[in-house]
Amino acid sequence: MDDALNLVRRASEAALGEAPTSGQSPALQAVLDSHRDELVGLVLSALEQGGGRTREARADYFNSLVYREEENQYRVGRRQVGLTESEKRVLDLLWQAMPQPVSRRQLHQALYADGEQATIGIIDVFVSNLRQKLKLASGGRDFIQSVRGQGWALKPEYCRNRAAPGEEAGEAGRQRA
């Protein structure tokens, strides 16, 4: 995908009469970053017409959970997932441990390490709320799996990392394993 985005950047620079430089035009970079999902959709559509990905694969891509570090937020496709601070902390822990499960006790200790008192059952409430919010954002996809006797884990096949600016093209879109 990043190769396709680089091709779009070079074509845009050529169309604007800009000489290709080693650094990106800040305005062009901002536009490309803000429309990244749309550009990826266009590239996937072109690949689909050429025998590439199917419509279902494109829908899977756009309904994947993504953590955008620069914005410190989670998104499902273009939709930001509105989370409370505690829900975000739980999702952060699940994201970091993915694909390994995180136990109720581990989540409780991480959230209430400063001595604040809360029953361990509150973790069940946070996970339930997270499940509902992620399902709403994705149109019904269940991102969190229960692992009997171990806790909860994010399903890595439904999550994708967004490459940070400057990362290698081969790292873009690679799922966390």
Rank of each mutant, 00 (worst) to 15 (best):
residue 3 D to E: 08
residue 7 L to A: 13
residue 8 V to T: 06
residue 10 R to Q: 08
residue 12 S to N: 07
residue 16 L to N: 14
residue 20 P to N: 11
residue 21 T to R: 08
residue 24 Q to G: 13
residue 24 Q to I: 08
residue 26 P to T: 13
residue 28 L to W: 02
residue 29 Q to F: 14
residue 31 V to P: 05
residue 31 V to Q: 14
residue 31 V to L: 15
residue 32 L to M: 13
residue 33 D to F: 06
residue 34 S to E: 15
residue 37 D to I: 12
residue 38 E to P: 03
residue 38 E to M: 09
residue 42 L to H: 01
residue 46 A to N: 03
residue 48 E to A: 15
residue 53 R to V: 05
residue 53 R to L: 10
residue 54 T to P: 01
residue 55 R to A: 10
residue 59 A to K: 14
residue 62 F to I: 04
residue 62 F to D: 01
residue 62 F to N: 02
residue 64 S to K: 01
residue 68 R to W: 03
residue 69 E to R: 11
residue 71 E to L: 14
residue 72 N to C: 11
residue 75 R to P: 02
residue 78 R to I: 07
residue 80 Q to G: 07
residue 82 G to P: 00
residue 85 E to M: 06
residue 85 E to N: 06
residue 86 S to E: 06
residue 88 K to S: 05
residue 90 V to R: 04
residue 91 L to C: 05
residue 95 W to G: 00
residue 95 W to P: 00
residue 97 A to G: 07
residue 98 M to S: 07
residue 99 P to I: 13
residue 104 R to D: 13
residue 108 H to T: 00
residue 108 H to E: 00
residue 109 Q to C: 02
residue 113 A to G: 13
residue 115 G to Q: 09
residue 115 G to N: 12
residue 116 E to C: 09
residue 118 A to G: 07
residue 119 T to K: 10
residue 121 G to K: 09
residue 123 I to P: 01
residue 126 F to T: 00
residue 128 S to D: 14
residue 128 S to C: 06
residue 133 K to H: 14
residue 133 K to E: 10
residue 133 K to V: 04
residue 134 L to E: 03
residue 138 S to W: 03
residue 138 S to I: 10
residue 139 G to N: 09
residue 140 G to F: 07
residue 141 R to S: 13
residue 142 D to E: 15
residue 144 I to T: 05
residue 158 Y to K: 12
residue 160 R to L: 14
residue 174 R to C: 10
residue 175 Q to A: 12
residue 176 R to S: 12
residue 176 R to T: 13
